[in-house]
Nucleic acid binder design. Structure first.
Lengths: 231, 231
DNA sequence: CGAACCCGTATTGTCGACAATCGAGCGTGA
DNA sequence: TCACGCTCGATTGTCGACAATACGGGTTCG
């Protein structure tokens, strides 16, 4: 069995269009909830509708658009409920990824990650509170652990299908709260557990790491419900 | 947010072709590992290559085929390693599904499932040891619990992307061993926990239920490794 | 004799046009 | 006035043909 592709460089023109639209949707350049017009996008990216439709199929696969037969496609609409569902999943899946990574991740990859964390730590010390860089670092950290699990289905789901949606939520709903500062320490602890081949602990720490964000969302949802329903 | 479609009846001809090929692959009529010829399949199902390619894209999505750019598609090859990866995932995801179902599943759906289980129980009492019927019943049971979780991403992953692959493994690798007889009781216990709104217990029982099969696979893998490597 | 190169063939990726279907707006009738 | 049906326009689904790329066999050179 071959591992998930996870990132082919844009070979075919369908790939190119896919990447462009992905970026545009994630960054909100194509607004969430807006309808997608095949002829318009085809003109915009200077391709025929055939590769465009191929790209749309893959966008649906990573949950960035929703298609209904004979009625076209829409960019997904973001909601706290959706974000909560997403984090419920991530908590389980990335916990599993940690357990498997502790088992299967090669020593070399672990050391590379440790070096990476140290590099990020330096950067953060320089500019305290800078969140965006941490964003990239955080996603990269999770990304590598998932790859370390060596479970092709898990890799595919998290890196190919959910990754961009997570990024979209982060960019457009600004999920970079006060947790940023704590993330470094938690990452360090998780990686240490993996280095010690302690899968159970790594699992637990990762669930906590993501679960903290999840509970944040649940609180927001609660307050939203409380402020809307009584009206 | 809309729930995953999970089963549109074949509206477009692309859908029709998709379902036909899905069935053919799952049942082994198109052998595992064989190369897929677009022109041939297009002729066989009397459609153009456009809807066929759409169908292939969706087949890739549910892991029944693997495509490499400019080189075509192949039916997946089954392996114990792949099956193990699949069950590792299922254990986590369906455990989560149980926990969420205990929280969100409407009383009515629960009662429907209880009725269904009783019906299956009668059927099984009549023909002890009959496995195939149990197969369908088992998949249906899991299916409904997943839907009960009301988590659209979870539903999509398990029911749309992994479901057919599980079926394919069951049909072609004959995963219907001695566990069949125990499944009924375990199903009953899981459903009871959900009915009691005891998510934690339902989670635990489901993990055990799937974990038993998973350990079975691990044992087979172990014996395979032991008999091959020394040579 | 082996390996690298080249070329023909088949397959995949892409295109433009046609057919089928859906949504919007208007007109008609109760 | 409101509801229903209809027509028109636009969009999506499908088709056949063309272009680009990868595989296989044969040849040639070291």
């Amino acid at each position: 069995m071959t591992y998930a592709p996870t990132w082919k460089s844009p070979i075919t023109s369908s790939d190119r269009v896919l990447f462009e639209i992905q970026r545009a949707i994630v960054e909100g350049e194509i607004p969430a909830g807006s309808k997608i017009s095949e002829p318009e996008l085809a003109r915009r990216f200077a391709v025929s509708r055939a590769p465009l439709r191929e790209a749309l199929a893959r966008l649906e696969r990573c949950h960035l658009i929703e298609r209904t037969p004979n009625a076209g496609a829409r960019v997904v609409t973001l909601s706290l409920e959706g974000l909560l569902s997403l984090y419920q999943l991530r908590e389980e899946l990335e916990g599993l990824a940690c357990r498997l990574a502790a088992e299967h991740m090669p020593q070399q990859e672990i050391e590379e990650m440790q070096a990476l964390l140290n590099k990020h730590l330096q950067s953060q010390r320089v500019r305290e509170g800078e969140s965006y860089y941490q964003e990239a670092g955080d996603l990269d950290f999770h990304y590598r652990i998932i790859l370390g699990s060596k479970n092709p289905y898990l890799i595919n789901i998290l890196c190919d299908e959910l990754y961009f949606l997570v990024r979209m939520y982060r960019v457009q709903m600004g999920m970079n709260g006060p947790r940023v500062s704590r993330a470094f320490d938690e990452h360090k602890a998780i990686l240490q557990a993996i280095a010690n081949r302690d899968g159970e602990l790594a699992d637990l720490l990762m669930r906590r790491h993501i679960g903290a964000s999840r509970r944040n969302i649940e609180i927001q949802l609660e307050t939203k419900r409380n402020s809307h329903e009584p009206n």
